[in-house]
Design a binder for these strands. Structure first.
Lengths: 216, 216
DNA sequence: ATTCTGTATACTGTATACAATATGGAGTCG
DNA sequence: CGACTCCATATTGTATACAGTATACAGAAT
């Protein structure tokens, strides 16, 4: 017998809204009009609010009683907190992920090649970077860590997208990805975890001066 | 001019429901009847569902489409994942918390004394243990880390409460708390972080055999 | 007796309605 | 010209209504 899992509307609505946030269509600090957004998406306010409350808990939105929801601001202080949490947890996840088999290795290399190819197109580059990191942990059995890191990576993405859109610069980490994979092949797990941390730290080091200067 | 922050119902409702979960009134695996619980608490289903969805995102509840919400099960696999995340993030938080001043130190010692006094009464002991850990990080400026660790500590508490209720045993960590405080006084931050990890690890080591045996 | 099937009921997921507060603008006074 | 008050409107937070699915039970068939 097969089980057909109905999906609640809030899940799809969440994806749609998160997508708009990540693409900057709802800009940092930007407010949300529930009725408007609901009719735009084509659902009632109920599942929309459920999605919004979820996104607030995850840190993408903030809300003030009586005034509704806003996209969270991008600040140096927040990034300085977000990234270390991210690399710590992703490192924890990587530490309990089996070394990539041949198929996974090929997959990671292919994604990294795509990343190199599209490094001039920020949105694409971010897509492939994200995909690479997710694929790296695809075999990780720790559910909690995976959902937590996925949320955190989406938040980092919002910073990186804003940076790239504003500065016109793209920072790409194909070389670092290669090094991580090399370390894993040699079963140097510790080293791979350290390199993963470095990978994120480099992004943060680009972001911080920009966050401190461009938006005081 | 002072700003009076109205609080949305869902916040208070969340506290009430979480309290019932932590105290085991809603037992692991136990289902929730929304209408019943809503009238019991004295609100409509709307803010109740908002609270329930939040608790689901935080990991206290699970839900199946069309069947509603259940208190999450307590499993060895989950505890094995939860505790390392907890000690890692709390360690990260502790690492960026200023060393306790005289007042904070006195406060921590007082709480630890209370903990020792009530070590026979599980619910009390858990309250003071939790309070001690929160107080340890009271001066930590990292908001994200604080909210994340608070949620995780509540989840650990659910495990510990269930263990104590079932086995009649209480594991108390007054001595470990003292050691952590001593390390902090000497500004041995690294050591304090390690001891904090040990503190949680001891709990986990009590839990795992029980989880594996008592509930297969 | 047991399993299956049909039906009544309960409950969830979503939409809509309602009440209260926040927002914005016109008019007024300084 | 600017600040303030008052009012109309928009929007949120909460309650209720409704539709469809899951659950439970009674009766039939084996």
């Amino acid at each position: 017998m097969i089980t057909i899992a109905r999906a609640p509307l809030r899940r799809e609505v969440r994806r749609v809204v998160l997508d708009r946030i990540l693409r900057g269509e709802i800009p940092p600090g930007g407010g949300i009009n529930e009725s408007e957004l609901a009719t735009d998406i084509g659902v009632s306010r109920t599942p929309l609010r459920e999605a919004l409350l979820g996104l607030e808990r995850e840190g993408f939105l903030r809300s003030e009683t009586g005034r509704g929801f806003f996209a969270a601001a991008l600040t140096a202080e927040d990034a300085e907190e977000l990234y270390p949490i991210l690399w710590t947890l992703e490192g924890l996840a990587l530490a309990s992920t089996p070394s990539p088999n041949a198929a996974r290795k090929a997959e990671l290399e292919r994604i990294n090649a795509d990343l190199a190819r599209y490094e001039r197109i920020p949105e694409r580059a971010l897509d492939f970077d994200r995909l690479w990191h997710d694929t790296l942990l695809a075999a990780c059995p720790k559910r909690r860590l995976l959902t937590m890191t996925e949320v955190l990576k989406d938040q980092a993405r919002r910073y990186e997208r804003a940076y790239m859109a504003d500065s016109g610069r793209v920072f790409v980490s194909t070389r670092q990805h290669e090094e991580i994979l090399e370390a894993l092949e040699k079963d140097e797990r510790e080293k791979a975890v350290r390199l993963l941390e470095t990978n994120w730290r480099v992004s943060l080091d680009f972001l911080l001066p920009w966050l401190r200067k461009a938006r005081p």
